[in-house]
């Protein structure tokens, strides 16, 4: 999470910069008269892949928001059962046959089976894992975007020494190896708050903070570049000449014109953060209370469980893959729609 590219170890970059949109291009002139957002939405609706992906994402959002009611409807919950009631300690800790796979037939009581060793219900953990994943990714995206937009705006608009300093900080954060930093910071934050009653919440907050701290640079660069171009445009010059205060210029004049790059950076960040949250949990940091897809994957990669009970691995894995994939493809479509010049 440290260089400008999307090398695999960086889990997809936080800072890929799509090409700048040229507002004076031929296409832009042809469709004059409609708001850019309307045009983009129209393009999106015609893109079949985008529609499918949007439906998938919507499905995950519903699962996340209504995790409670859906679990209740299936009669499952996060509650820890007594392990010996559901799993067979003398048979490698695998679920008893009456609990469903891998040793028994499908049962309505536990539609996705139960976890080995603990006997916790997989469906409930999957649903709440989805909630955790989306919640953390969405919040981190929000914070990172806000920071990125503000830094980008200031650097781009004020220029000079401010720009130099902020750019330096952007570069500096890009050279800090993200995974290492997260590995180091998360336990320290956790340690400080382990007495709190809301420990679970604080842990997630800590994760969001860490993700945001290392996620804002891409947005900042993008916005900065955009602002540098906008700054010289007539309407900004006019506002300046009229003596509009800087803050108003920034938020009233510039910000509305930055909708496209902001959406683009959000579309890049969301899937990255979903993948990162699970990836960190897989490495054993981040969320540790068990309600996380990444943690379930970590447990399921135990070779015996993988051989005997691969469903246990595939459930969270498919969740992450489907969510990240559709977010990525949707983001790609959104970028295309906003900026047809890069369309393939």
């Amino acid at each position: 999470m440290s260089a400008d590219t999307a090398g695999p170890e960086t889990l997809g970059s936080l800072s890929t910069e799509p090409e700048h949109q040229d507002p004076n291009s031929q296409q832009a002139k042809e469709i004059a008269g409609k708001s850019p957002m309307r045009i983009a939405l129209g393009r999106l609706a015609k893109d079949k892949i985008a529609v499918v992906c949007a439906v998938v994402v919507l499905f995950f959002i519903i699962c996340a928001v209504f995790a409670g009611p859906i679990s209740a409807a299936f009669g499952v919950s996060l509650e820890t059962p007594l392990a010996s009631e559901r799993v067979d300690g003398l048979n490698q800790g695998l679920p008893k046959p009456e609990m469903g796979p891998p040793n028994g037939p499908f049962t309505m009581e536990h539609p996705m089976g139960v976890a080995p060793r603990t006997g916790e219900d997989n469906l409930a953990y999957w649903l709440y894992g989805c909630r955790v994943s989306l919640l953390i990714a969405a919040t981190a995206t929000l914070f990172a975007s806000v920071v990125g937009v503000i830094v980008g705006l200031l650097a781009g608009f004020l220029g000079g020494a401010v720009d130099k300093m902020l750019s330096f900080f952007i570069d500096m954060f890009l050279t800090i190896p993200f995974l290492l930093a997260a590995l180091t910071i998360a336990p320290i934050i956790n340690d400080r708050f382990n007495l709190s009653d809301n420990y679970g919440t604080i842990q997630k907050t800590a994760l969001i903070v860490v993700l945001s701290i290392f996620g804002w640079m891409g947005t900042a660069r993008l916005i900065r570049g955009e602002v540098l171009a906008l700054r010289e445009r007539e309407f900004v010059q006019a506002a300046r000449v009229m003596g509009m205060p800087t803050r108003r210029i920034l938020f009233k004049e510039l910000l509305p014109n930055l909708a496209a790059p902001i959406i683009i950076s959000i579309s890049l960040m969301l899937p990255t953060f979903v993948a990162l949250e699970a990836g960190l949990a897989f490495l054993g940091i981040g969320v540790t209370d068990g309600v996380s897809w990444g943690q379930t994957i970590l447990k399921a990669t135990n070779l015996t469980f993988f051989r005997e009970y691969p469903q246990y691995l595939w459930q969270p894995l498919l969740g992450i893959v489907a969510l990240v994939l559709s977010l990525n493809l949707l983001g790609d479509a959104v970028r295309d729609a906003l900026d047809p010049k890069t369309r393939r």
Partner: peptide, 8 residues
């Protein structure tokens, strides 16, 4: 819960 703790 001796046995349960142990299995988990």
């Amino acid at each position: 819960p001796y046995e349960d703790v142990w299995i988990a």
